[in-house]
Amino acid sequence: MRQIDAGLITESVKKMVMEANYFLPEDVYSTIKEAQDKEEWQLASDILDKILQNADIAKNDQVPMCQDTGMAVVFVEMGQEVSIVNGYIEDAINQGIREGYEEGYLRKSVVGDPLNRVNTKDNTPGIIHYSIVPGDKLKITVAPKGFGSENMSRLKMLKPAEGLEGVKDFVLETVELAGPNPCPPIVVGVGIGGTMEKAAFLAKKSLMRSFDSYNENPFYADLEKELLEKINELGIGPQGFGGKTTALRVFIEYYPTHIAGLPVAVNIQCHAARHKEVVL
């Protein structure tokens, strides 16, 4: 067994929550720049320019690009030959979130109970997803998720008979209903299949993908391209003021499902598509 110290996990998570909030990933930045070059509607182009300026300021001044520094979503892929020493992994991750949000001047946006709503004042707990994988490495991805876009996300248990058209309609309907609210241009994460929670998980997980990636299955890769084109025909545009650039990317992940079901989840992400990863 390879041993990894819990303190190293805390340090890594702390660094990642800060960096994710200050530095817009390069692939996201260049995709917004490309969209701006292609955007012929002046108001839309001006807004994309402001979004890029904002990313530059955040990077240079090391300040959060958005005041909603999110709830910390963490994906852990743990090699089955890894053993964590000197602490419990979940405590180590939450400690990293606690220290990073404090030292990084990030907003504490978590309430301890959804109905009684008292702020936990340290942005914990995070939303932590674990998977056990082959090998002796530990991969941690941190994605601060803002709720302007999270609130516009939806899930539906379609009938198998609704098929491909049903999925397309549901994705487009979700983007239409969201309109200007989730700070377009958006990234659209779609999870299809599995069970109710699996579809939601896949939708979230898809948002971690690189902007130059498509689904490995050509059928789903084509569907990603087709949906992006259809979304950008809606005319919602940056901030909902009209324009071509409503979405930057559509990411789809799928999974086997039951003979009676066709779950589909759509997780909306704003243009601040923040995530950082580390392999320990």
Binding site: A58, V63, P64, M65, C66, Q67, D68, T69, Y105, L106, R107, S109, G148, N151, N181, P182
Partner: peptide, 22 residues
């Protein structure tokens, strides 16, 4: 409609964009 991030020393406020109005 805004909930800003904490201000660093010597600054009046942190990052301060709008939240969703509905």
């Amino acid at each position: 409609y805004v909930g800003p991030t904490p201000a660093r020393e010597g600054e009046p406020i942190g990052s301060a964009g709008p939240t969703t109005s509905y």
